[in-house]
Write a protein that binds this DNA or RNA. Structure first.
Lengths: 138, 138
DNA sequence: ATATAAATGAAAAAGCTTCTCATTTACACC
DNA sequence: GGTGTAAATGAGAAGCTTTTTCATTTATAT
């Protein structure tokens, strides 16, 4: 019952918020841009403005319901937060996004921040490449 | 003699290109946005259009003279290419950028790409945090 | 010297995201 | 169940960085 999650975050339970949550939960895409969500809403017959989609996604990010990935050079994509920290591999041909977890890297990052006297607040790691599928297609 | 570098890259030797190169070489800032470069040019009395600055920086990137960092959420910054691959630490308070090299991470990245069947073309790693100086200032 | 392909400047356009503001809605309280 | 109020929404405008367009200028090969 995701109404609870919204209330917990201090957000009123509104149709746009419920529908955006529904899209994120039911879409085939694990990673969606605001535009993707907006279009999915239209397809489902919900006339929710793009500005609202942006607002809602940003609020969800603040509430810890989704995380935002800032892809190289441009637009953001959002994914439902599942508690697991992970990094991303991106296919430069088809834009497929895969996820991975690597404890060695996590640990090295903490060590490097410490060495440099940084109090680490966040980090982002993207590996760009050509995915298995696109290598064949070429 | 950087005219040579330009010629080698198949670029005509023009005033805007020489001046942008000069700015990058002489600025206190190792990391500059297009806007930064543009302003520095104005201060030095060169009236070079912002569009040209963008074009020149992009060409320099193509020629391997500079690399482009795509900072979280927005604009790009450029640094003179010195041949050494490195990643970056960014202070979220003062925007200071520090660099580091970590072979363990490099190796793990290659391993992960291989595991996932990706032909790695590039990667980007940013560690965000509060730098030593800003921790004191608070 | 000159022809020509490339480079430049200025302004417009593009692409993503945020803001403004008038209108609507959720929800606490009676 | 009403109803007041703060929050949310929609639509369009605006913001920001970056790219494009196109007429004009310039570097360079011959």
């Amino acid at each position: 019952m995701e109404s609870q999650d919204l209330r917990k975050a201090g957000l009123k339970v509104t149709l746009p918020r419920l529908k955006v949550l529904e899209i994120l939960e039911t879409s085939d895409l694990r990673h969606m841009s605001a535009e993707d969500v907006y279009k999915a809403l239209l397809e489902m017959g919900e006339e929710i403005g793009l500005a609202t989609v942006y607002r809602v996604l940003t609020q969800f990010e603040g509430a810890g319901l989704v995380s935002r990935l800032s892809i190289d050079g441009g637009h953001a994509v959002f994914e439902l937060e599942d508690g697991s920290h992970h990094d991303h591999l991106l296919c430069v041909r088809c834009n497929r996004i895969e996820e991975f977890i690597d404890d060695v890297i996590e640990q090295r990052q903490r060590a490097i921040a410490a060495e440099k006297g940084f109090e680490m607040t966040d980090h982002s790691l993207y590996i760009y490449g050509i995915c298995r599928h696109c290598q064949k297609t070429k």
